[in-house]
Amino acid sequence: MKKFINSVETVEDEMIQGLVKAYPKYLKKIDGHNVIVRANKKEGKVALISGGGSGHEPAHAGYVGEGMLDAAVAGAVYTSPASDAILEGIKAIATDQGVLMVIKNYTGDVMNFEMAAEMAEMEGIKVKQVVVNDDVAVKDSLYTVGRRGVAGTVFVHKIAGAMAETGASLDEVQAVAQKVIDNVRSMGAASLPSTIPASGKPGFELAEDEMEVGIGIHGEPGTHREKMMTANDITDHLLERILADIDYSGSEVAVMVNGSGSTPLMELYIINNRVADVLAEKGIKVVDTYVGEYMTSIDMAGFSISVLKLDDQLKELLAAKADTPAIKA
């Protein structure tokens, strides 16, 4: 393993401290926990909390700020934070309007956030949640844990955050967050695995001419392995799966081409070039595009494509003001 770190034990702590030192106007850290909250708490609105394992930077702490999140909880690398840290985050940001938890659909995340919510409710805090499950690579069924939450989560942060900023009620913010979840689909592929610092080994091994398709964001293998494709071919394949899942025809959409950590912007732009052409050809109108690193997997080389179907409300909220370290609108 070759990483610019000091010790595997201090990766998360030092990263969080460095982040806060970079953005003191936006962020502060809660004592004793890797929980990031806004530097200036805003009262009178629904507070949003999200989080998950570390390794997804700038998610989630990079989205703490005006128009997006009020708190982000960072667990160990790829590991859901424990419920006591989440509870401290909820308590720090709670307002009379209540708290909305934006959870990515992973067994650990859901369990830990729900346990924290139960404890917060015992202390008289109103808490609701949404669970993001935008990854079409994974089959959804009653008998499994269902789809994963991946990069589409960032759209939930953006839009629900903007809704909360308007002074909307907890039910209204939850409803719009759920609307985003119902209308966003994602899928990704990887050309190189990631390495968890504490393990020191790559999450899977790929031959020089292979890629993993249907990849998640935790370095786990994808749904299958294929021979490496050109940017256009893999983009077509992923888009085909995404567009088959919900009816986007004739609609306006927002697109995210998300880099996994080691894939350069050069490749992401090449991919977006194809995404834009394919969608235009199908009569789907792209009104907003995000290309860059929004939900990474440490040093994995790969990308995901997310397509969010918009209506007037979602479009307006997506364009609303946001001022966070990682997204400004």
């Binding site: 394992g53 667990g75 160990a76 590991t79 859901s80 934070p81 424990a82 419920s83 006591d84 840290a85 992973y106 067994t107 650990g108 369990m111 830990n112 346990m115």
Partner: peptide, 12 residues
């Protein structure tokens, strides 16, 4: 285990 570990093994 529940409060310090996180992930799914902690709560389980």
């Amino acid at each position: 285990l529940v409060s310090k570990v996180g992930g799914s093994s902690g709560p389980l």
